[in-house]
Design a protein around this nucleic acid. Structure first.
Lengths: 193, 193
DNA sequence: CGACACATGTAACACGTTACATGATTTG
DNA sequence: CAAATCATGTAACGTGTTACATGTGTCG
């Protein structure tokens, strides 16, 4: 939902045309997550379908401008005011993978943790280096904010990996075999045969 | 891709039927992210389409067992061995929102940060409480791992919010107006008119 | 009996992502 | 002229998610 909402928030500042919207999105996110142009038009169509934006007449220059509707403006502001709830709901791929790996008899979790640690450390170093060479001005600020977020995330990841290693060490038997179909007379759909 | 890969990894332990797969997934992730049963069958069909699993004959009990193929096994093991690359590519909704909010003239970033801080603090407290009352055994370990991950994430989020607040304070003019269409003769598609 | 857990599946949709087609205009 | 940029759009696909239909077996 992030792309959709971001575009809506930008359109709440005033009418834009598609190509312009991409530039705005990039500027305001420090060009961190480049957006395929096609997705803009795609998303605009969906926003129009939902009555959140409306297509305006074509510019004398040929630009197709889009304007936010009242409903769209309300949604944009609601989005900007509301915090994101991330703890619940959103599946974390790394935690998921590690938990699955830890409970699988065959998987070598220690190695996975090691590999992940290397990866995360490398990523962190890269991010720190990039954050050092940040430009000034509002666009630099946007980029700095995003980089800070990623740095904080990477650091947390590394700390968590240490913690996970400790836990696994204290917990010798973490593997779970597949639960076999119970021997007791089963319940549920029986064989058609 | 997480659900798909997880199911594949579980199937790499031996044949399972759909309903069983959900139970396995839940056990191994500490029941943190409940999975709609329908999605299992859905995903199994897609895995079959991709040649990673194969449908076997129906059990004498009526269970529809699925078996992993060689290609599937290879993919499962590759997934379990490889670290996740998260820094790049994955868009972070909170960072995105905050960056957009910070660069929008109308948005009140300070309030958003405050609201987010409350939300994150509350979530963190909830997570810590839950982590305290963790059961024993392998399933408890899985849950603990996932909770630790969420806790680390929430802590990082709070730290980052503080950092963001500092940055914004040092950076008085963070708002960016919409970039108007340049006055210079435009390039690109002209008006049809 | 009725409620609930077991069990399988289908259909539709959401968002995100990419590849492609098309065309004008500027610039080297 | 050729290449790059600006600009709009279409078509297809991927995963995740939910709602619904269907049916059996157990348990109180």
């Amino acid at each position: 939902m992030s792309v959709r909402q971001s575009l809506l928030a930008i359109l709440d500042q005033g009418p834009c045309y598609g190509y312009q919207l991409r530039a705005e999105f990039d500027r305001r996110t420090g060009s961190t997550w480049p957006l395929n142009v096609g997705q803009i038009y795609n998303t605009l169509d969906r926003l129009e379908r939902d009555g959140l934006v409306a297509k305006r007449d074509i510019d004398e220059r040929g630009h197709v401008y889009w304007q936010i509707t009242d409903a769209g403006s309300a949604e944009a502001q609601a989005w900007l005011r509301s915090p994101v709830a991330r703890a619940t709901g959103t599946r974390d791929e790394l935690a998921l993978k590690l938990a699955v790996a830890a409970t699988l008899p065959g998987a070598r979790v220690e190695e996975l943790i090691g590999a992940q640690r290397s990866e995360s450390r490398e990523g962190l170093a890269h991010l720190v280096a990039e954050a050092g060479a940040a430009p000034r001005g509002p666009e630099g600020l946007a980029r700095a904010l995003v980089l800070d977020s990623m740095i904080a995330g990477a650091e947390a990841e590394l700390r968590w990996l240490d913690r996970a290693e400790e836990r696994l060490a204290q917990h010798p038997e973490h593997a779970m075999a597949l639960e076999l179909a119970t021997e007791r007379p089963r319940r549920g759909r029986p064989a058609k045969a």
